[in-house]
């Protein structure tokens, strides 16, 4: 896997346009889905992913194969999404929650359980309402299937922070989805 990644990266660095397109085809679908869920708009996601791949093209020289190319691309993508959301937040009034929102969403009173069959639309809507930090961790863990160790590397946080963000996200989603 790593050898294949290094070979592909080397071909991209050597200016092989087919290799870079191959890299795009391998990862674009999952990354696009992730970005749509992070920013809530397919149009914005398209612009952001274009910037991510442009940045990847510039930075491939620095790829040393310590992680997989996929993980490396996820790191670029999430950095870009979070920067974008910070910028959006700066343009809006300061009323929105911060990226490091510490709020716990768990209601104190007992409430009905989350329905056994959660509709996709309800879940997508609930995910969109999460603060960006915990949304990022939840998407990477529960949707994309990364382990906390990998998420720590992608988001530049500790493994404990990743676990804590996923826990907060699950608590908030639980509160939103049970009625």
């Amino acid at each position: 896997m790593r050898t294949a990644d290094l070979e592909l990266a080397a071909r991209c660095r050597a200016g092989d346009a087919d290799a870079f397109e191959e890299l795009y085809r391998q990862h674009a679908r999952r990354l696009f889905s992730l970005v749509v869920r992070m920013v809530g708009s397919a149009d914005e996601a398209e612009d952001l992913l274009q910037e991510v791949f442009l940045q990847a093209h510039r930075k491939l020289a620095g790829f040393r194969g310590e992680s997989t190319l996929g993980t490396w691309l996820y790191r670029l993508t999430m950095n870009h999404c979070l920067d974008h959301l910070r910028g959006r937040q700066a343009k809006m009034s300061r009323a929105t929650d911060s990226l490091d929102d510490e709020e716990s969403a768990e209601p104190m009173a007992p409430a009905p359980a989350v329905p056994a069959a959660i509709s996709r639309m309800d879940l997508e809507k609930a995910i969109a309402s999460l603060p960006p930090g915990s949304r990022a961790a939840f998407l990477l863990h529960d949707v994309e299937g990364f382990e906390h160790r990998e998420i720590a590397g992608i988001l530049g946080v500790s493994e404990g922070t990743s676990k804590s963000q996923v826990h907060k996200a699950r608590l908030k989603l639980r509160a939103l989805l049970r009625r």
Binding site: A28, R29, R30, F32, S33, V36, R37, A42, A45, E46, L49, V114, P115, A116, I118, R120, L123, E124, I127, F138, D142, V143, G145, R170, L173, R174, L177
Partner: peptide, 14 residues
């Protein structure tokens, strides 16, 4: 339940 539902969310095609 949440984890199971999240893991089956489909992709958005670029």
């Amino acid at each position: 339940s949440l984890r199971d539902a999240a893991s089956t969310l489909g992709d958005h095609a670029p």
